[in-house]
């Protein structure tokens, strides 16, 4: 019974969602929309589980002075600072804002939350993304080796596209931009379509396996 109920729930909801996809019948749409709302509410509550997990693991490490406990303390301090700043912003916009803005929320863009968002979160986020430029260089240097025919083809295509994509390619040889465009438009598109068709069919198979309870990893025990 313990195993059957979750499978029944997932099959019921899954089949209803499939029905909603194909049918324009208002009653089906209403029930499916209601189920979607339940999903959104459940997902929203689950964020609490995530935060609790984060606090539990990191607080324990700090209290027990485990290895690298300083990083964990920094994480907790940052998290609570941002949460408090977010709460203050919400209060200014939704509670005090409505009092002074004829019942409508007031947009506040100069709070502590905004400051940290603009001057801490923005640059940190951009920095991690910018690492890609360096990692692409090191990964390309290591991976593009003409070890066999396939690797050689990959290497040749990569070199043409890398040179042809930038203006210097046209300056070196006028054919580079055309050649890279040809590679991107034809072999690339063909490969993309082939992978996408295969992946889409794989998605159908996986989706149905989960909906019909053929595969239920969470119930393995």
């Amino acid at each position: 019974m313990r195993n059957k109920i979750p499978v029944f729930i997932s099959a019921f909801v899954g089949i209803f969602m499939i029905l909603k996809y194909f049918s324009t019948y208002p009653a089906i749409k209403r029930v499916a929309d209601e189920l979607e709302q339940w999903g959104v509410i459940t997902l929203s509550f689950s964020i609490v589980l995530g935060v609790l997990n984060l606090i539990k693991i990191n607080l324990k490490a700090v209290v027990e002075r485990k290895k690298d406990w300083g990083y964990k303390l920094l994480l907790l301090v940052s998290m609570f600072t941002m949460m408090i700043a977010g709460g203050v912003k919400w209060y200014l916009e939704e509670v005090r804002g409505r009092q002074v803005n004829q019942g409508l929320p007031l947009a506040v863009h100069d709070s502590l939350f905004d400051f940290m968002f603009d001057h801490v979160y923005f640059p940190l986020s951009a920095t991690i993304f910018a690492l890609l430029a360096f990692y692409v260089a090191s990964a390309a240097f290591r991976a593009f080796r003409a070890k066999n025919l396939h690797a050689t083809l990959l290497l040749i295509a990569a070199v043409i596209v890398m040179i042809g994509r930038v203006p210097v390619g046209g300056a070196i040889w006028k054919g580079f931009p055309w050649l890279q465009e040809w590679i991107m438009t034809w072999p690339n598109t063909a490969g993309q379509r082939a992978i996408q068709i295969g992946a889409a069919i794989g998605m159908i198979a996986t989706g149905l396996r989960v909906i019909l309870g053929i595969e239920k990893p969470y119930l393995k025990g």
């Binding site: 080796r145 890398m162 040179i163 994509r165």
Partner: peptide
């Protein structure tokens, strides 16, 4: 930014080709 990007692309291509020559 185009010349910077061109230069970095050329640099990567140069490194890749040099790496292959060295490997061979």
């Amino acid at each position: 930014g185009m010349f910077i990007q061109s230069a970095v692309h050329l640099l990567i291509v140069g490194l890749v080709l040099a790496g292959n020559v060295a490997q061979f």
